[in-house]
């Protein structure tokens, strides 16, 4: 099966409000898939379903099925820790922990019970290199992560996410709080990362979606309107609504 994630008839309710309406979608492995759509269309909610981060919110009810490499992640027997280690996530606002740069990267591994110093050193270096941050921070690994700039902090969060070696990386508007230069760096990084990871990215920025993604899903009011290769969506959408949104007529 070349599809990394299969979403089948997924509906999500916040109390009585239905935020996702029977979404069905297959996401390819080692490609990057973008979710676009106006604010409140449910794209972030859908993303957070993929690592079950919505579970924590009071009053959320989920119907339908998501399978990742053949297992239903909403099966009661699933181990959340393993799932989230397999599905990493980068958030809209960079959220480094109040620890040193080194400790931030090593956090996921330490939680997993890895204590071997040389192994940790190796992973920290590898992850920081993978997030194109190593050269900038290698001399101050033991300083607080809060001393980094916004763009660096976001790349630190990416490094932290890939340190636990997930197969899937979720990104929730990773560049919305960054300036253009930092954005360009992170985008460059995403293009690099999709060689090794399946990337799902939520973005408001349509140029960004067209730049970094292979597939694009357009969502509106909790429904998946259209899903296709990015080229097709942007050049030749088959549904009028998509065309209107992309050409800026609404949203």
């Amino acid at each position: 099966m070349s599809k990394a994630i299969n979403i089948r008839n997924l509906s999500l309710y916040y109390g009585k409000a239905k935020a996702l309406k029977e979404v069905t979608l297959d996401i390819e492995a080692n490609k990057s898939t973008a979710f676009i759509g106006p604010s409140g269309c449910g794209k972030s909610t859908l993303l957070r379903c993929l690592n079950r981060l919505n579970d924590l919110i009071e009053g959320v009810k989920i119907e339908g099925e998501i399978t990742i490499s053949g297992t239903n992640i909403y099966d009661p027997s699933i181990d959340l820790t393993n799932l989230r280690r397999n599905v990493g996530m980068v958030f809209q606002k960079s959220n480094p922990f109040p620890l040193s740069i080194y400790e931030n990267i090593a956090y996921g591994l330490k939680i997993a019970g890895i204590k071997d110093k040389s192994k940790l050193d190796h992973v920290v270096e590898k992850s920081l290199k993978g997030a194109a941050l190593w050269d900038e921070v290698k001399d101050r690994l033991n300083e607080s992560a809060y001393g980094l700039s916004g763009g660096q902090q976001q790349r630190l969060c990416i490094a932290r996410a890939i340190a636990v070696e997930p197969t899937i990386l979720l990104m929730d508007e990773p560049c919305s709080a960054l300036d253009p230069i930092a954005t360009a760096k992170v985008e460059e990084l995403i293009k690099e990362l999709k060689k090794d990871y399946t990337i799902v990215i939520v973005t408001h920025n349509m140029q960004q979606a067209s730049r970094v993604s292979d597939y694009t899903a357009f969502m509106f009011l909790g429904e998946l309107i259209e899903f296709d290769e990015t080229k097709t969506i942007f050049m030749n959408p088959s549904i009028q609504q998509t065309n209107d949104y992309i050409s800026g007529r609404f949203g």
Binding site: T81, R84, R85, G88, M89, F91, R160
Partner: peptide, 18 residues
């Protein structure tokens, strides 16, 4: 303590207690 930090830690596979 910002919510983002909690989510960040949970997303790395740590339990609520951790």
């Amino acid at each position: 303590v910002p919510k983002g930090i909690r989510d960040g830690s949970l997303a790395l596979g740590s339990t609520k207690w951790e």
